[in-house]
Design a binder for these strands. Structure first.
Lengths: 324, 324
DNA sequence: TACGGACGGTGAAACGTTACACCACGCACA
DNA sequence: TGTGCGTGGTGTAACGTTTCACCGTCCGTA
């Protein structure tokens, strides 16, 4: 690997000058500038990140801390984050906390040790881990707001509204809710948005809270079994919806003939399952990209204007809801 | 952040000694060793990776280059890689090449610039990119062997055998093949393993090659439409199988009543789709973990014994194949 | 008593950058 | 003639580690 010194001696100029050229700073003449550039190019010079990091304290790497790569929402996000980061010359260091606070703390320690410039983070716990405050690096949250940190996520309330309006339009007046964990704002807002946009004379027949990972607990199973008067089941996300569909199918209940169902997220599989799932699409790619852009702004010293960046969601109408 | 010097002055000892203690090297007495350890602990000392990297040339970070996080096989792999790497104190730097050679080259450049200690790689192109040879860092391949590099993957031939034996046992004598891209060894071996274990008097009614991402081309669509005499469709992976099932369902063909189908990979969704998909499970987690272990061995100077590490696969019998 | 070696510890160079202070020169202007 | 300034460039310290050469001291042994 060629170093600044190599180039300097090759061109016959000082190291400082080479450095100045390469970081295009002023105070170096045209001819020398050209010579240095050419030499650097020919010798295939790449700055030694370790040395740079040591001197400047910046690594041009960012951490990405995710709770569960197994949930299809996150790989898509990771892909977007990695790709836009790379286009900005930023390396992405991945931590999958597997939904455990311990793994998260662990991953953070590792990231801090490697002195990443910033962290894009989708927190697992309900509260901020204390070590975060000691993090000297900027943090951008994804999907799960916490006081004091910038966050980018979808307009979940809007999603709930959209769903409610659609349910009404399709003539459903009794719904069952298979909500996600209510300590997660994303789950709560979907639910509240839905309920809030639903007229008073229309009933939530029942509601069960389950995990976002789509494994159904006993209460959920029972609720699905005797569905009460619900003609529509509104699931907290697609994983839940698909699990529910599978569960219903096994009980011989047909979707959407016997009961309708909606999801949330528009993961790839909603389009491939039978019947195809009506759901809310969030712009995952845009969210990931935006998070990186925000980070980049913070890294280059700009103050981030708004603390929250919220993306519109859209209703994807497919085959899992029938007119009632 | 506390440095060696801080500890040294606190304890009243030289920097060198502190360094010696912390890397537990000999030639330092018990009392001082204790003092230093205690001080380091109290001050929350973490070695500055940049400085270490600069001095030693090692970063304790590894690259993970994947072709497509959107394919559920890879997130699972990434999760395993990240977790076992972290347990070894290794940071994982992610690159998603999006299946493009250009992205791959790009990502490699970034990784080399950051001087990762090694790269775990699932190559997209059929051949080795030239820049790889100039990579001064060890490479461990996953899933896709290339001459000259250690690789870990599943026994795809065995998978084919298992499927063939099962097909026979279930009385299927005419099969349609929806094979994956034949330039990928993983796809080719599944197919060849299947065909090879299939007795002569039994026919492959038709075969179409499609991508592993599960989008079906015109030929595949046509083949599915008139299925010839095939009573069983053997898909190259689960994505393909599920897409095919959806396609069949839309045409009013019932699975498995009218035609049976098998997948490969046992991704999460095989269990949730209707009917549940009979498939081959590969031990993804074990593969990821093994790749990291191999890397770790190489990093600590051991020569890797075998170039290939191959894992057994198992048949997961579910509902998508019926006795014929 | 003298010598060799183990033990416990120190000083300082080096890794590749960056950034600050400094310098020399030429030119305009009073 | 001297002052001031802009232009183009250099020398070097510093970042936090690791590592190598070196140095006392003490003990056992010849």
């Amino acid at each position: 690997m060629a170093t600044l010194k190599d180039i300097a001696t090759a061109v016959g100029v000082s190291v400082a000058t080479v450095s100045n050229v390469l970081n295009d700073r002023p105070n170096v003449g045209r001819v020398i500038r050209q010579k240095v550039l050419r030499a650097a190019n020919k010798m295939g010079y790449r700055p030694n990140r370790a040395a740079q990091a040591m001197r400047t304290g910046r690594t041009r790497a960012i951490g990405l801390v995710l709770p569960d790569l197994t949930n299809p929402f996150f790989p898509e996000l990771a892909q977007a984050v990695e790709n836009t980061a790379r286009s900005l010359g930023l390396l992405v260091c991945l931590v999958d906390s597997q939904g455990r606070a311990e793994g998260e703390a662990n991953g953070f320690a590792l990231l801090m040790q490697h002195a990443v410039d910033g962290i894009i983070w989708c927190p697992v716990g309900p509260r901020l881990p204390p070590y975060l405050h000691s993090a000297t690096r900027p943090v951008v949250l994804i999907d799960r707001p916490r006081p004091g940190f910038p966050v980018v996520h979808s307009d979940y309330v809007m999603g709930g509204h959209l769903l409610a309006a659609y349910a009404l339009r399709m003539g459903h007046t009794h719904v069952g809710l298979l909500s996600g964990p209510q300590n997660l704002a994303s789950a709560r807002q979907r639910r509240d948005g839905f309920v809030e946009a639903f007229p008073r004379d229309i009933k939530v027949a029942w509601e069960v809270v389950v995990g976002f990972d789509g494994v159904l607990n006993a209460a959920a199973l029972k609720a699905l079994q005797r569905r009460g008067r619900a003609t529509l089941i509104v699931a907290g996300n697609d994983l839940i919806a698909i699990s529910a569909m599978r569960c219903l199918a096994e009980a011989g209940v047909r979707v959407p003939e016997d009961v309708s169902i909606t999801g949330f997220d528009n993961i790839r599989w909603t389009d491939v399952v039978t019947p195809r799932l009506t759901t809310i699409a969030q712009p995952v790619g845009a969210i990931g990209a935006k998070a990186v852009q925000l980070m980049q702004q913070r890294l280059s010293g700009e103050k981030i204007s708004g603390q929250r960046t919220i993306f519109d969601v859209t209703l994807i109408e497919r085959d899992s809801v029938r007119r009632n």
